[in-house]
Structures are given as C-alpha cells and as structure tokens.
C-alpha cells in the first residue's frame, strides 16, 4: 500500500467513529432543524425562491458546529496517548493530520449535501436559480472546510477537548469578525479581505472567482500545516 493508503485509512476511521458517537447525529439534527427554520423564515414568509439567506445562516451555524466536530480529533489522541502508537508506526505526521482532516471533511460534506434538500423542495413550487444555488453551496462548503481546518489546528494545541473547542471558536470568530475591527486604508482592506463573510458574499452572488478559491484553499492548507508543525514540535521539546 502506497502513501495514498495511509491518510485514507486514518480518514475512514475518523468518519466511522464520528457517526458511531451521538454528537455528529445531534449536530446534524440541529443543522436540519435550524436550516428548516431559516428556510421557512426567508422563503415562505416572503414567497421568494432566493435560497441565499438559507446558506448564509447555515454558514453562520458553522461557527458553533466546526469547533464541536473538530475538538476531539487530535486532543483526544493526546489525552489517551494513542498518538504514540500512530507516530511510531510508518505514518508521517502529515499523512495522519491530513487523514483526520479528510475524515471530518466527509462528515461536513454530509451536512452540506443534506442541506440541498431545501433547494430541491423549493424547485417543486417555483423556479430555482440553480447557478446561484451551486455557487452559494460551494461557498458554504469551502467556508466549512476553512473553519474545520481552524478547528483541527486548535485541537492540536491541547489535550483538553473543551479547551480545543473554545480555542477554535476564537480562531473562527477572528476570521469571521475581522471586518468588525475598525481599520482604515490597507489594514481595513486586509481585514475585510481575510474575513470569511466577505469571501462568502461573492459566492452567494453567483461569483466563483479563482482568487477567492485560492484564498479559502490556502487558508485550509495553512492551518493544516500549522497543525502538523505543532504535533511535530511537541515531540522535540
């Protein structure tokens, strides 16, 4: 088995374990319930078929969901010492962390796929702008991928799951609310640019630009890289 196998093995385990515990199911139920509320509130009330408010609100929910989905990933391994068995096996830290990330990304993708029920339901009663739905959905998915990478990074910093969840909440909030920081000129522009809502906004307008894709993907890669460094560095000190 080549390198392909290693992260896949780790990812598959994460995915299985996530759905064996109640947490993912509870969050999924909450996700659907809140999604339904947003759906009823924004579509039925206004008799519109514009689904972007639903995806917007669901994306906001991720600020709470991502820390809960990612908190145990690395913190729990460190707490019960099972990282010792993985890191002494022929698996690189990169493969391990990537596997963890892909695993939780699967779980998140399932959440995202389920949310497609809303546009599907709408399409029975009116004309849905599928292009905008597709770009909004992609934007939400990338938004989620970015917040999960932040959560994974936070989980690498501690062996306490609650601390990990709070840390990742703080990091996600930092990237979510960076536009709230008053700033002028370059700083203000930068703060606006790195904020997740301003990135997401373009997707909800039906715009999928390369620069936004690159920004979100490099955000994920950056936090994964940091997580790998943290795991490796801890063994050196």
């Amino acid at each position: 088995m080549g390198n392909f196998g290693k992260w896949w093995v780790v990812a598959r385990r994460e995915w299985q374990v996530a759905f064996q515990a109640p947490l993912a199911w509870v969050l999924l139920a909450l996700w659907m319930f809140m999604g339904g509320r947003f759906f009823v509130g924004s579509l039925l009330g206004s008799r519109s078929t514009d689904l972007t408010p639903v995806f917007w609100n669901l994306a906001v929910l991720l600020i709470f969901i991502a820390p809960l989905l990612t908190m145990r990933l690395l913190a729990e391994e460190r707490r019960n010492g099972s990282d010792e068995l993985i890191l002494t096996a022929p698996v690189s830290t990169g493969q391990w962390v990537l596997g963890k990330y892909i695993g939780v990304l699967f779980v998140w993708t399932m959440f995202a796929v389920v949310s497609l029920l809303f546009p599907l339901a709408t399409s029975r009663f009116g004309a849905v702008q599928w292009g905008v739905v597709a770009s909004s959905w992609l934007g939400m998915w990338l938004f989620g991928a970015a917040t999960l990478s932040m959560g994974l990074f936070a989980s690498s910093l501690t062996s306490n799951q609650v601390v990990a969840a709070m840390l990742s909440f703080a990091v996600v909030l930092l990237f979510y609310g960076s536009t709230w920081v008053p700033g002028h000129g370059l700083v203000g522009q930068l703060m606006t640019y790195i904020s997740l809502p301003s990135q997401f906004n373009n997707f909800t307008l039906g715009l999928v630009s390369v620069s936004h894709l690159i920004y979100l993907v490099s955000l994920c890669v950056g936090f994964l890289f940091l997580a790998v460094r943290v795991v490796d560095l801890r063994r050196w000190t």
Binding site: R13, Q16, V17, A21, G81, E84, L85, T88, A89
Partner: peptide, 17 residues
C-alpha cells in the same frame, strides 16, 4: 518503524472500535 512493534505502558487503544 516498519521493523518495530510497540506496546506502550497501559496500551492506548481506541475504545470506540
């Protein structure tokens, strides 16, 4: 690493599997 099998003190296993 391929050539070593390791049983740490108080073996850290995955309880949910």
């Amino acid at each position: 690493r391929r050539r070593v099998g390791y049983l740490p003190d108080n073996p850290p296993l995955y309880p949910e599997m």
